[in-house]
């Protein structure tokens, strides 16, 4: 397979003739991406060592590591790190675990399968602010929400979910958005599994469980790696869902790193402190990316 690809690449090169024109066509895209990724990064780093508050012009100058020190010793910061971890890990477990099971389920033939699949992947196409408000108001509102009505109908007292279990509830809302993404990707991958392979295993007398673990799961490994990578990128900086449901509260109970940085920057106007948080967010994302990209890059056809 890879030998064929390489051969055709050489062929392409020889046939059309590489040269300066290739670099010239590539240059604009590379240039804007370079500017986009380097300039803000350098500025964030620079601000993070400055005393800089938008509403207090008397405060300025080099701050050393004060912004970092102030942030790292703030209990809110530790809480936000914990919440970020809960959100990323919780949603990954739900979406990858559930997504794998649902992909296998919707790979089976049944009446109306096509429609059922479309319904399942739909939440992924709903914009985050709509998803959040749908759940906050129509579903979970303690008085008018459908779920509250159902709880009353079976004799339970409705719970104000976003007040009582803010982080768990935000996690469920985000999982509702990202589980469909996992199903979409993993279902596509399951369907590319050779029918003959499945049949051969069936004839060999492999049970459904053995078939799942020995054939389906290994086949899915690359798609799962891709899902984990892409979801991690997005989940590390979930923002809109928190902003419109809990505004990070009560207190800081549902504040993740992204929301903390936002509130430092645009609610408290503390550019220095927010930038220190930004640098930490970038470092965390890069640590995650270093592992994930390496795992996935092997699978990309380049």
């Amino acid at each position: 397979m890879s030998a064929v690809t390489t051969a055709s690449q050489h062929h392409r090169k020889a046939a059309i003739g590489a040269g300066a024109s290739g670099a010239l066509m590539l240059a604009p895209a590379v240039f804007v991406l370079l500017v986009w990724s380097v300039v803000p990064l350098v500025l964030t780093l620079w601000y993070s060592f400055q005393n800089y508050n938008l509403v207090d012009p008397t405060l300025h100058g080099f701050a050393g590591v004060n912004n970092y020190w102030y942030l790292l010793s703030d209990p809110d910061f530790l809480q936000s790190l914990l919440n970020t971890a809960i959100l990323v890990i919780g949603v990954l477990v739900i979406s990858v675990g559930g997504g794998t099971l649902l992909a296998v389920l919707y790979d089976q033939e049944f009446v109306g399968r096509g429609v059922a699949r479309v319904l399942v992947i739909s939440p992924f196409f709903v914009m985050p602010t709509v998803s959040a408000l749908l759940w906050k108001n129509l579903m979970l509102h303690p008085i008018y929400g459908v779920y509250s009505w159902m709880m009353r109908a079976v004799g339970l007292t409705p719970i104000d979910w976003l007040q009582r279990f803010p982080m768990l509830t935000v996690m469920m809302i985000v999982a509702w958005e990202w589980l469909p993404f996992a199903v979409l990707i993993l279902l596509t991958a399951v369907q590319s599994l050779d029918a003959e392979q499945k049949e051969a295993a069936l004839l060999d007398g492999a049970g459904p469980v053995a078939r799942f673990f020995h054939i389906v799961l290994p086949h899915l490994s690359r798609a799962i790696a891709v899902v984990v990578m892409i979801e991690t990128i997005y989940l590390l900086t979930i923002f809109a869902e928190i902003m419109v449901t809990t505004a990070g509260g009560p207190g800081v109970a549902s504040t993740n790193l992204a929301y903390l940085i936002y509130s430092r920057a645009l609610l408290q106007f503390d550019v220095g402190g927010a930038s220190a948080g930004g640098v930490i967010a970038i470092v965390i994302a890069n640590i995650a990316a270093a592992f994930l990209v390496r795992a996935v890059a092997r699978h990309l056809e380049v």
């Binding site: 986009w36 920057a265 640098v279």
Partner: peptide, 17 residues
């Protein structure tokens, strides 16, 4: 792969600048 890696930059990390 470098282009892919620019996607890893969390938007909130560069919110301020």
């Amino acid at each position: 792969l470098w282009m892919l890696s620019t996607r890893m930059l969390p938007p909130v990390g560069v919110l301020v600048p």
